[in-house]
């Protein structure tokens, strides 16, 4: 392995990793917000909108991110909705992740017995306060393992961003392989950088899961 090559192109990978992470985080934030909204709509059984949400969830879960991105990036401009590649990446990731987050939160919400809400109501809390102070905090901690798994899944999905010509890690690796034929070095750095991004999140997820499983509230 040519270490000189690795050090020479390290900054390129760093830049790419920052881009990958930035869009990844933006997309994940969109996904969480979208997921909470969709989960609340389904949990609250809001008429009509609830149907739209289920259609969205099925569409999002049963199609690949790459195709979603192509449609947003190349298809939508044809009917006058243009985005730049970075915004497209974040929106696409958010569109994909929203449904996964919604399912995670909804299954958390469903584990909270309705009588918990009633006991909060009986204290005079308004429905929104019941949600905010009693239901959501419990649901979120129940959904935490699924939540972390989704975050890892979404960070992995960022690897397709190069398809809409974002200069992410995949793009950089492919570029270097094409230009200099340094396949081993390029792939090695690719793996290392993905490990740097994903390993801490994965370990954190496991830590949280263990804590929740063996401890729960009160330790």
């Amino acid at each position: 392995m040519n270490t000189e090559f690795i050090f020479k192109y390290l900054p390129l990978y760093e830049k790419a990793a920052v881009l990958t992470l930035r869009i990844g985080v933006e997309g994940i934030i969109i996904a969480i917000l979208l997921g909470i909204i969709c989960a609340l709509i389904q949990y609250g059984k809001v008429p009509i909108i609830r149907r739209i949400v289920s259609v969205y969830i099925e569409l999002s879960r049963n199609t690949p991110l790459l195709v979603q991105l192509f449609f947003i990036y190349y298809g939508l401009p044809k009917i006058g909705i243009s985005t730049n590649a970075e915004v497209c990446g974040a929106i696409g990731l958010g569109f994909l992740g929203g449904s996964y987050m919604a399912e995670a939160i909804r299954s958390g919400l469903e584990t909270i017995e309705p009588i918990q809400a009633e006991s909060a109501l009986s204290l005079g809390l308004k429905p929104a306060q019941v949600m905010r102070y009693v239901i959501l905090p419990q649901a979120v901690s129940v959904s935490m393992p699924a939540f972390m798994a989704n975050i890892i899944f979404l960070l992995k999905e960022t690897s397709v961003f190069s398809a809409i010509s974002l200069m992410d890690l995949m793009f950089t690796a492919k570029d270097l392989i094409g230009l200099y034929y340094k396949t081993t070095e390029s792939l090695f750095m690719l793996v290392v950088f993905y490990l740097i991004i994903l390993l801490p999140v994965s370990l954190l997820g496991r830590f949280i899961e263990r804590r929740l499983r063996y401890a729960g509230f009160g330790t």
């Binding site: 049963n62 199609t63 690949p64 192509f70 298809g75 939508l76 044809k78």
Partner: peptide, 24 residues
Amino acid sequence: SPNAAFGVFLTVFLLYFIACWPLS
């Protein structure tokens, strides 16, 4: 057909959906 990207990618999107949804 300069606007083909919309129709064609929409179709691909739906094709994937048709392939995956019944399995889900």
